[in-house]
Design a binder for these strands. Structure first.
Lengths: 216, 216
DNA sequence: CCGTTTCTTGAATCGAAATTCAACAAGCTC
DNA sequence: GAGCTTGTTGAATTTCGATTCAAGAAACGG
């Protein structure tokens, strides 16, 4: 039936399938068969590659996180203006909408982190990396005299990431009056106060949006 | 074996048992037997009172949320000084530590909200109520001339609640360098900037801490 | 006390999903 | 293209938890 594939290729496929399955059915309610279905295989085949489903789920979460972070890094890679850089970073930290697959997965992870130390560690790492990212931007801007920081860069950076996270949850939970645009404004309100910069950057023309797997 | 109890009393017990069980095993991986065990009953008895386990879980989440909110309201009930009020409110929005039962349950809820509309609605309501709470405090302080608000009260209130939420998650996930005291400082940093008030309030002497059920 | 209602148990049943495994197919090497 | 390795299936088996239910114990009202 299904064409045979190389070990590494199939594992990659399975990780993607697991991501999709988890977003649809939940990190710890997803069934082996649901992952198999997403991959277009049978449960036996999945088990052949991952004798313990939990290993696969962990790898999938890891990959999802990595992808999310890498995407953000890539988005600001070419930008030199600190103001523009900061604004784009803020925008890239929020889900595109309530269906955003990457962020939904992260929310899932957040819920499980209270019970699962490995997931907790994963999220902690992501948080810290994002803080560093902001910190770099802030200090660069300060060095160039564009920002006049009203607190330590770490404090600001931590708060910025915290705001992103929290609004991510709200958006995923479909808050009726708190959409993406509103969340951006709320975070910008803080960022303006604390950088002493109006942060006037026109909205980008909508480019290719981030992958949206949860087509349910 | 177990002593017989009145309908309402037993239902109350079951809600508490469900709370404990969910914190230990996860909102949507908790087993009927685990709830029964927490209640010191058999699965049959649980089913007698709640033919559908999901109803019980929902009530338990609802009760947990209500308790969390009510506790916060009660904490600031007697305080008239807006500065003190604001600071106490900020402190009461964070978990006492990584084991804090109430907040762990809320995090669970957050993770499930992406898939479960009812849970999402529950959290949205809680968020909005907390925003109102802050908004009242902020406007009262502004009216008294103690605060000089640097943005709309709703904007500030939304950001304050968002920060609390996010740091709650970090603390529950045991971030190694972001403990409760640090989180309070981070939020206060924002609150100071935006109220134009130094918010100098000595730490309360540790009173009876919030219930900590997750003794696992 | 006696009968009734309410609550609880424990064992039996049912169902769903995980796990195992023999057979088979598709590449790969020489 | 024969023989080996690797990947995949599908059905059988096992496991585990939910569900049902007959029976019994505790309160309660007269």
């Amino acid at each position: 039936m299904t064409t045979r594939k190389s070990r590494t290729q199939r594992r990659q496929d399975l990780i993607e399938a697991a991501r999709r399955a988890m977003i649809q059915h939940g990190t710890d309610t997803v069934l082996l068969n649901q992952v198999a279905e997403q991959a277009g295989l049978t449960s036996g085949a999945v088990l052949y590659h991952y004798p313990d489903l939990r290993d696969l789920l962990l790898e999938a979460h890891h990959a999802g996180m990595e992808r999310f972070y890498e995407l953000r890094v890539r988005r600001i890679a070419g930008i030199s203006d600190p103001v523009r850089k900061l604004v784009v970073t803020i925008r890239s930290g929020l889900p595109t909408d309530a269906e955003d697959a990457d962020v939904r997965l992260l929310c899932e992870l957040g819920g499980a982190a209270g019970r699962n130390r490995v997931y907790a560690a994963l999220l902690t790492t992501l948080y810290d990396r994002q803080v560093s990212m902001y910190q770099t931007i802030l200090e660069l801007g300060a060095a160039q005299g564009v920002f006049r920081l009203a607190a330590e860069s770490q404090t600001i950076a931590r708060n910025l990431v915290a705001l992103e996270d929290a609004y991510g949850y709200r958006i995923i939970a479909r808050h009726p009056t708190l959409d993406v645009a509103e969340a951006v404004e709320l975070i910008l309100s803080y960022a303006r106060q604390v950088t002493g910069n109006p942060l006037d950057v026109p909205a980008e023309p909508a480019k290719a949006p981030r992958a949206r797997r949860a087509s349910a």
